[in-house]
C-alpha cells in the first residue's frame, strides 16, 4: 500500500509541485494551506510523513509542529521542514519543536525524494 504524505504550504504552486513529485514517486498525498489547516486535518489522521513550510499565515510551520508533537497520533510521525529559512537559530528552533529534518528551498526533486526515502526507511 502506498505511503501517505501531508504537504503543508501556503503557496498553492509549491503544494502542487511537491504533491506532484511525490505522486510521481508512488506516494499518496494530502494538502493543507497553512499550519492551522494542517493541524486540523492531521490531529485525528495518521500519515507516514509530514512536509511543512515555516512561514505561513494563521499558524506557522514550527507552531504546527509543536502542536502535532503534543498529540499521540503524531508524537513519532517524521516531519520534514521545507523552507526558505536557512538561519541556524530558526533551524534549531525547528529541531527543538521536534522536526525530523530541514530542507532549504529551492530544492531538487531528486534530493527531496532521496531524503523522504531515507526518513521513511
Amino acid at each position: 500500500m502506498a505511503q501517505t504524505i501531508m504537504v503543508v504550504d501556503d503557496s498553492n504552486a509549491i503544494r502542487q509541485s511537491v504533491s506532484f513529485i511525490l505522486k510521481e514517486n508512488g506516494y499518496e498525498t494530502m494538502e493543507a494551506c497553512d499550519g492551522k489547516d494542517g493541524f486540523d486535518k492531521l490531529k485525528d489522521q495518521k500519515v507516514d510523513l509530514i512536509i511543512t513550510d515555516v512561514n505561513m499565515p494563521n499558524m506557522d510551520g514550527i507552531s504546527m509542529l509543536r502542536e502535532l508533537r503534543a498529540t499521540d497520533t503524531h508524537k513519532f510521525t517524521p516531519i520534514l521542514v521545507l523552507t526558505t529559512e536557512s538561519q541556524a537559530s530558526i533551524m534549531q528552533e525547528g529541531k527543538s519543536a521536534g522536526a525530523t529534518g530541514w530542507i532549504v528551498k529551492p530544492f531538487s526533486n531528486d534530493k527531496l525524494i532521496a531524503t523522504i526515502k531515507k526518513v521513511l526507511g
Binding site: 536557512s86 530542507i103 530544492f107
Partner: peptide, 14 residues
C-alpha cells in the same frame, strides 16, 4: 547578520 547554517537545497536530518 547571523551567519547562515545552510545553503539553498541543503538537507539536514536531525
Amino acid at each position: 547578520v547571523e551567519e547562515s547554517a545552510l545553503e539553498a537545497g541543503e538537507v539536514t536530518l536531525f
